[in-house]
Write a protein that binds this DNA or RNA. Structure first.
Length: 414
RNA sequence: CGGACUGUAGUAUAACGGUAGUAUGCGUGCUUUGGGAGCACGCGGCCUGGGUUCAACUCCCAGCAGUCCGACCA
């Protein structure tokens, strides 16, 4: 993409209505625009990051057997009444149609839709297990939005639901596959080393739910972690569980963290209200056992920015950067400009994602400052100084090197 | 939901009970080109409603909006 054609612009000034680092940098660099408190538009650069993350999550969900669907945000009141959450969930957005006077909910989560859905297809033990997920926007009437992208009123979530014939099968999937898939997602998104499998409250019929907490001072949760086992305990249950659940270590380290994922064993909590049953081999009718697994995409993006930035801007992990390389042409000389154009084309031919700062009216300082702010992993520079070579520098490195175009393409296209 | 603070050009800010200033941005022209470059000219603003006052952007009240703290977070 040519930067000269990008309709967004970067800003020098810190937005006065954002205190959090993630929102400040994402707005300044032109990844998102704030519409109102807790609601953001994804701009071209931000949407590319979003799609990178979305694809990582999708691949990992498909890898454990997930089948992707897309459920609606607009939902009927009756379904929510069946689970007692029409009144019971205080951050559910509810409203009445002006024409029909019918009540609706905006989906805060999708158990109320997916369980009636599976009731139309799951009848027998032969239909189980089933794994279904979606990546979709959620609405929650938060009493207080905060911390930029970390807690909003509308946000995207990957919600995955598993359906099992018994608790043993759920357990097996939950701990062996579900948990592993989440670890893969966070590892691929670049935050694996700072993310902890965390015991938390909220288990429906099981004692605990499990969260994936990534260490950050911007986090609203406090966790106590066992560095040896890479396991943590949320402060909310620390009085009943004050040691590492794995090794019994009582010397836990206190940290602030962002909850980037959460998995629950729902068991029969939603299958019973909707009467979701199956016929077992022995002819008996039994309740379907469920698990659910969520990852907030906006929050994950915000957490990544909180963790990876410096005073000049964002430092995206390569797998989620909007582009792999940021090519800057600093020269006005036609020969050098043509050389930069050639590199741009060759990178595209080699399928290397590239943002090309081809602007003629921007100064070198401006281009460097914007490149650092945007935070793309590799910065390439063509200028009067680089001659027939190209300067390459990683965003998180202080040093650069000069390479030939051929070596450059080879290095970047693998 | 309770509390605190804040609303001034696109953005970030200043001052003042009596003509609203600066930076940045945007437009035009010239100069400049390895860390948000320079000069000149131009464009553009007091959240909404009420009250006090001769006069309110300024003081008071309410509303709306935003941020932060707390509570809440299936």
């Amino acid at each position: 993409m040519r930067q000269s054609l990008l309709f967004t612009k970067t800003r020098k000034e810190i937005p006065k209505d954002e205190d959090s680092i993630n929102a400040q940098l994402l707005i300044r660099a032109g990844f998102v625009d704030k519409v109102m408190a807790g609601v953001y538009t994804f701009l071209p650069l931000g949407l590319r990051v979003f799609k990178k993350i979305e694809n990582i999550i999708r691949e990992e969900m498909v890898a454990i057997g997930g089948q992707e669907i897309l459920m609606p945000s607009l939902q009927p009141k009756e379904n929510w009444e069946k689970t007692g959450r029409w009144e019971g969930l205080d951050n559910l957005f509810r409203f009445t149609s002006h024409y029909s006077k019918i009540d609706y909910a905006l989906g805060a989560t999708h158990e109320e839709i997916i369980v009636p859905l599976t009731k139309k297809f799951i009848f027998s033990y032969k239909d189980l297990p089933a794994y279904i997920f979606q990546i979709q926007n959620k609405f929650r009437d938060e009493k207080r939005v905060k911390s930029g992208l970390l807690r909003g009123r509308e946000f995207f979530m990957k919600d995955f639901y598993s359906f099992h014939k018994d608790e043993k099968d759920l357990d097996l999937f939950y701990f062996k596959k579900g948990k592993k898939a989440y670890e893969n997602v966070f590892k691929r998104a670049g935050i694996g080393s700072s993310t902890y499998f965390t015991f938390a409250s909220g288990g429906t019929f099981s004692k605990y739910s499990h969260e994936f907490q990534t260490i950050s001072s911007a986090g609203e949760d406090t966790i106590f972690l066992c560095e040896k086992c890479k396991i943590a305990v949320n402060k909310e249950i620390i009085s009943e569980q004050n040691s590492c659940p794995d090794c019994g270590n009582k010397n836990l380290k206190e940290e602030k963290a962002v909850e980037v994922g959460n998995i629950f064993q729902l068991k029969t909590k939603y299958s019973i209200p909707f009467d979701l049953k199956y016929r077992d081999q022995d002819g008996a009718e039994k309740d379907v056992i469920m698990g659910c697994y969520g990852i907030g995409l906006n929050r994950l993006i915000g957490a990544i920015v909180e963790i990876f930035h410096d005073k000049n801007g964002i430092i995206w992990p390569e797998a989620v950067a909007p582009f792999k390389v940021h090519l800057l042409n600093l020269s006005k000389d036609k020969k050098n400009r043509d050389f930069a154009e050639k590199i741009y084309k060759d990178l595209q031919i080699s399928e290397v994602e590239v943002l090309f700062d081809d602007r003629v009216d921007a100064t070198p300082g401006e281009k460097f400052a914007e490149a650092d702010l945007i935070g793309i992993t590799y910065r390439l520079v063509v200028s009067d100084k680089t001659g027939s070579k190209v300067e390459i520098k990683r965003r998180n490195s202080k040093t650069s090197s000069l390479v030939s175009k051929k070596d450059l393409i080879t290095k970047l296209s693998k």
